[in-house]
Design a protein around this nucleic acid. Structure first.
Lengths: 186, 186
DNA sequence: GTAATTATTTATCATTTGTTAAAGGAAACG
DNA sequence: CGTTTCCTTTAACAAATGATAAATAATTAC
């Protein structure tokens, strides 16, 4: 499982812990635009993208807002629900044909108790996500929509594959505005 | 130390762990507008506000930008530097006369090794910060500057005490724009 | 392959925010 | 107390973004 190599890049856990972790990882396949997790309920599953891509979305005043994108080897999880226990207002949808590694949160949290190293691994994974969130806040504080779009282009190559409206809501602007920005860049 | 009650509200660690943690907490006092940590170096200290308030700031094109505010019982830490080991471009400055609990990161991380519970406590504290960051991103995605300002007013009572320019940069707008927004609200 | 649907662009106008400059107020300090 | 400095407001204009509608373009389904 490649995901374990990815985990190793954060923190190497022992062989036994690795096996225990392996035991609770389930691989699942999804088609394009498939709902991996619907809005509602409490988030009890962590996902890692093996192949493909997905987004976390929610609705605001009837508009579909993309909060987060995740692609190969990235984690995708509705953290505000997982960490607070609150019912989530967000869902997870694939962007293309996608294979996910899924981990049941309860099973994982039980492993935390017995394997200090597993808890540490996930601490480090989420700290990394936290840092990404801080960088995104900075981007909103400092940059114009055009600059944020260019930043996204430089950062990743999946921008091309994603419907404009998802990228627009991710950047906090309207689809029309993003289309205009793209036109101004050529 | 009240800070330990605050810690308890996240997760109760054992008596021994509590004592060990206590041993590395140092209380420090600062005047108004005092530099707690200057820009540069790698962040190796965690702060918790006992009394008063502080902000994380950085410079962008010569402008002083406030990334974060922290008041009574809140953590204040330059996470991108603490978690990545990178040199920080950010500093910490008090907003008023402030008492901080400070924790040396290296000492804390050593305690992580021996006290699983201490690591868990801080995992939970930072997960909470992560959730706050996600909420802030949502705010940028969805809300106008006016709405973000009202949100801040509703959320907290320290807005009155802070120079307008700090609040403006925190909200991602100019000081002039915030002044205009405030005028429009009366 | 064609029709139907969905996605993107373009255009127009309204609103918000940025920029710059100047005036007014408040706080700090001798 | 008065002066200096810093903070906040106001004004005028420019630029960016939002809202709505219509025109193309691309994709999907039959």
């Amino acid at each position: 499982m490649e995901i374990l190599d990815y985990f190793d890049s954060f923190y190497k856990i022992g062989k036994e812990a690795k096996q225990e972790l392996k035991n609770i990882i389930i691989e699942k396949q999804y088609g394009k635009n498939a709902i991996v997790q619907d809005i509602g309920n409490t988030c009890r599953t962590l996902y890692f993208v093996k192949e493909g891509g997905a987004r976390i979305f929610y609705y605001n005043k009837g508009n579909d807002i993309t909060e987060h994108f995740a692609f190969k080897n990235e984690i995708i999880v509705r953290a505000e629900s997982l960490f607070t226990g609150q019912t989530t207002t967000k869902g997870i949808e694939t962007i293309e044909k996608t294979i996910m590694f899924t981990i049941d949160a309860n099973a994982l949290f039980r492993l935390y108790d017995d394997y200090h190293n597993i808890e540490r691994l996930f601490r480090l994974i989420f700290e990394n996500e936290f840092v990404n969130a801080i960088r995104r806040i900075e981007s909103f504080q400092l940059k114009t929509a055009t600059e944020r779009y260019i930043e996204l282009l430089n950062f990743t190559d999946w921008v091309q594959k994603i419907p404009l409206k998802h990228i627009a809501s991710y950047l906090g602007i309207t689809q029309v505005s993003l289309s205009r920005i793209r036109a101004s860049l050529t």
